[in-house]
């Protein structure tokens, strides 16, 4: 029987290394410490394109963490939406395993997961970057935002792929992959090209 799996559903408590009942003061304290360390690390290394992308994403995650968790209402909504989504995934997986028609559940889950990732990954990260408190600590500006939009989209879709890996197959039947045969296929393609 499938068990709940929260991989891919971004957890800002984990990012800020906090317990889900952390107080706003603890959120701020953890955010400032982590951001300070990150800024110091950035200043100490040579910035390549790859590192820039990595650091921008780290900054954006911390900003979104503070933005969502320091206010009770926003935090509760985020945590509830996340839990609902995890429950919905579990419900769909169980229904699929039982062999029933899961088309409606699939559609409902798909709409929820897209909305969750859009709201709590891209939107929250960009909104966090415009927040006064975040700007003061992280020095996030318009140039960061311009660079970040592509990186955040990539991150969001990466999370979606991570979730997708464990979901029931819907658009296609579950493939029965023989990796020894796949290896032979790759070899035959390269042999064909090398001749």
């Amino acid at each position: 029987m499938p068990t709940p799996n929260d991989g891919g559903y971004v957890n800002y408590f984990e990012i800020l290394e906090l317990e889900p009942d952390a107080k706003p003061g603890e959120v701020r304290k953890s955010y400032r410490t982590k951001m300070k360390n990150l800024v110091a690390e950035i200043a100490a290394v040579e910035i390549t394109e790859e590192r820039r992308a990595k650091y921008l994403l780290e900054m954006a995650k911390l900003n979104a963490g503070l933005f969502l968790l320091r206010e009770t209402e926003l935090r509760d909504t985020y945590w509830r939406d996340r839990k609902e989504l995890i429950d919905l995934e579990l419900e769909w997986c169980r229904a699929a395993e039982a062999g029933g028609d899961t088309n409606e559940l699939r559609k409902s889950y798909d709409a929820h997961v897209r909305s969750f990732l859009s709201r709590y990954v891209e939107d929250a990260m960009l909104a966090g970057g415009r927040d006064k408190e975040c700007v003061e600590t992280s020095h996030w500006d318009a140039a960061h935002e311009r660079h970040a939009s592509r990186i955040l989209r990539h991150y969001r879709n990466g999370l979606y792929q991570q979730i997708l890996e464990r979901l029931p197959y819907a658009d296609v039947t579950k493939p029965n992959i023989d990796w020894t045969e796949r290896q032979k296929f790759a070899g035959s393609v390269l042999a064909q090209g090398a001749n």
Partner: peptide
């Protein structure tokens, strides 16, 4: 919406690679 047969999707992909 149809659920595509995986064995044919693999064949399509393999032939596309070839």
């Amino acid at each position: 919406p149809a659920q595509l047969p995986a064995e044919l999707v693999i064949a399509v992909a393999d032939n596309a690679v070839r």
